[in-house]
Computed example of a mutant assay.
Amino acid sequence: MSKTQHDEYIEGTGCVAAIRRQLVRWSKLSNAGSVLADGYLRVLNRLPRTPLPGRHRAFLLRPKGLSGSILLRPNTTDIHAFADVFYAAEYGGILDFCRPPPRKILDLGGNIGTSVRYWQHLFPDAQIVAVEPDAKNFSQLQKNILLGPAPANVKVICAFAATADGTAGIDRSQGEYGFRMTTEPGCESIATISMLKLIDLLAGQDGQVDFLKCDIEGAEADIFANSQAWIYRIATAVVETHPPYSPEGLLADVMRAGGIVEHELTLPKMEGRAVVYLRFRHP
């Protein structure tokens, strides 16, 4: 996927552009039922106070080529998580970076499992560990893994990935798609969640990870600023950066920690975010 293709998806205004984007989205679904479910989910999300049928049930969408459907909840940001992976092809360039195909994958910020299902589609023999802190998202993650191929190849952990063990608050004010770790005592929608050191998560993968995906809503800044103990264990990574952390800051932290970047690609997103692909070279 090129930068131009990605920008074309996330940019563009006006009715015609919106219709064109929606038609492109629907062309990536496998059947009419999925198209109808996508459309109705968007109606429910746009009219949250309207008493429409199906308000409290989940819907199944199946992208073309995927083995099994994915379960999405209305009145949540699930459709956006689905769209990033299967419509915008946010991780569409990963095949160019993962050579040979990864056997061990660590997914930080598993959310409802859209990325995990994509990894299963691309790398059916991989062993995957997915980490998601929010209990409701975690439950949805488990359901979606069971709907996919080889669920026994996926281990799920309900926790934050962090630089130290302990507990932290979870800020739910930005919706299911943007839950983040916080230490602000006055923040709304806070619950206490366990934290697991990234080095311990890597130990569960026998110390080495072929592919690391990291989308943890700002906590990546602390993770990569303190990556000296583990960066050399990663072969390939895809990291979403969230302001004020930037791709430049990420690269500086990685190199400061001793990581040698063989190839890098940055794809800008909205609101200052970016998806950064990294392939490492190890001496």
Results as ranks from 00 to 15, higher is better:
residue 247 P to H: 07
residue 254 V to K: 01
residue 254 V to N: 01
residue 7 D to W: 06
residue 277 Y to T: 00
residue 103 R to W: 00
residue 276 V to H: 02
residue 9 Y to F: 15
residue 231 I to K: 01
residue 24 V to K: 15
residue 47 L to M: 10
residue 210 D to A: 07
residue 265 L to Y: 07
residue 46 R to Y: 01
residue 82 F to N: 08
residue 75 N to S: 12
residue 65 G to Y: 05
residue 133 P to V: 02
residue 42 R to F: 04
residue 54 G to L: 07
residue 180 R to S: 11
residue 40 Y to P: 05
residue 148 G to L: 02
residue 142 Q to D: 10
residue 90 E to I: 04
residue 219 A to M: 05
residue 91 Y to N: 06
residue 158 C to I: 02
residue 192 T to C: 07
residue 183 T to I: 07
residue 77 T to G: 12
residue 60 L to W: 05
residue 87 Y to Q: 07
residue 145 I to W: 01
residue 124 P to C: 13
residue 254 V to Y: 01
residue 20 R to Y: 10
residue 168 A to Q: 02
residue 63 P to V: 06
residue 202 L to A: 09
residue 235 A to H: 03
residue 21 R to N: 14
residue 133 P to L: 04
residue 23 L to P: 09
residue 186 G to H: 12
residue 156 V to G: 08
residue 61 L to W: 00
residue 204 G to F: 02
residue 268 P to T: 08
residue 206 D to F: 11
residue 9 Y to H: 15
residue 208 Q to S: 11
residue 127 Q to A: 13
residue 58 A to H: 07
residue 198 L to A: 05
residue 237 A to Y: 01
residue 174 Q to P: 06
residue 78 D to M: 05
residue 62 R to I: 06
residue 264 E to Y: 02
residue 276 V to K: 00
residue 214 C to I: 01
residue 35 V to W: 03
residue 220 E to T: 08
residue 170 I to K: 03
residue 253 D to N: 15
residue 221 A to P: 03
residue 6 H to I: 08
residue 131 V to D: 00
residue 68 G to R: 04
residue 103 R to V: 05
residue 168 A to F: 01
residue 114 T to N: 15
residue 43 V to F: 06
residue 166 G to C: 08
residue 75 N to I: 08
residue 101 P to I: 00
residue 178 G to M: 09
residue 206 D to S: 14
residue 180 R to L: 06
residue 39 G to S: 12
residue 266 T to M: 07
residue 101 P to N: 10
residue 247 P to C: 06
residue 136 K to T: 14
residue 50 T to S: 09
residue 66 L to M: 13
residue 6 H to L: 09
residue 145 I to K: 01
residue 270 M to H: 13
residue 179 F to R: 00
residue 197 K to G: 10
residue 281 R to K: 14
residue 270 M to Y: 09
residue 31 N to S: 12
residue 39 G to Y: 05
residue 152 A to W: 10
residue 209 V to S: 03
residue 180 R to H: 12
residue 184 E to L: 13
residue 83 A to S: 15
residue 247 P to W: 03
residue 126 A to D: 07
residue 117 R to N: 12
residue 279 R to C: 06
residue 154 V to D: 02
residue 105 I to N: 01
residue 25 R to Q: 12
residue 151 P to K: 02
residue 86 F to M: 08
residue 140 Q to G: 05
residue 179 F to D: 00
residue 98 C to S: 13
residue 191 A to G: 04
